Amino acid sequence: MSRRTATLVVSGLMFIALAIAAMFTSVPYGELTPGPTVNTLGDYRGKPVIEVEDAQTYPTSGHLNMTTVSVTSKGYDMPLLGAFVGWVKDDADVVKKSSLYPDDKTEKQVEQENAEEFTSSQEHAKVAAFEKLGIPVDKQVVIAKVSKDMPATGQLHAGDIILSVDGTPVRVEDEVGAAITRHKPGETVEFVVDPADARGTQRTVTLTTVAAEDDGRSVVGITPGVLPKFPFKVTIHLEDVGGPSAGLMFALGIIDTLSPGDLTGGKFVAGTGTIDDKGSVGPIGGVTMKTIAAKRAGAKYFLTPKGNCAEAAKDKPSGLTLVQVDTLDDAMAALGVISTGQGTLTECQK
Score class of each variant (00 low, 15 high):
Leu163Met: 15
Gly242Glu: 01
Arg171Met: 04
Ser259Trp: 05
Gly225Glu: 10
Thr206Arg: 15
Ile180Tyr: 01
Glu239Ile: 02
Glu187Gln: 12
Asp197Glu: 04
Asp166Ala: 07
Thr257Cys: 01
Glu173Val: 13
Gly200Tyr: 11
Val172Ala: 01
Thr153Tyr: 13
Lys229Gln: 13
Asp215Ala: 09
Pro228Ile: 13
Gly186Ile: 05
Leu252Phe: 09
Thr181Ala: 09
Leu238Asn: 08
Arg199Asn: 03
Gly261Gln: 04
Pro260His: 10
Arg217Ser: 15
Leu156Met: 12
Ser164Lys: 14
Arg182Glu: 14
His183Pro: 01
Lys233Met: 01
Leu156Arg: 04
His237Ser: 07
Thr204Lys: 13
Glu190Phe: 00
Gly186Phe: 02
Arg171Cys: 00
Leu156Pro: 11
Val219Glu: 13
Gly186Met: 08
Asp149Gln: 12
Val269Arg: 11
Leu263Lys: 11
Ile236Ser: 03
Thr204Arg: 15
Ile222Asn: 06
Pro185Leu: 11
Ala158Ile: 02
Ala152Tyr: 11
Lys229Glu: 05
Ser245Pro: 08
Asp149Thr: 12
His157Asn: 13
Gly243Asp: 08
Leu163Cys: 10
Gln155Gly: 12
Ala196Asp: 09
Pro244Asp: 07
Val176Thr: 12
Leu252Lys: 03
Pro228Tyr: 14
Gly253Trp: 06
Ala246Thr: 10
Val189Asp: 00
Ala178Gln: 14
Asp174Tyr: 02
Thr264Tyr: 10
Met150His: 05
Val205Ile: 15
Thr153Met: 03
Ala196Tyr: 12
Asp174Cys: 00
Ala152His: 04
Ile254Asn: 06
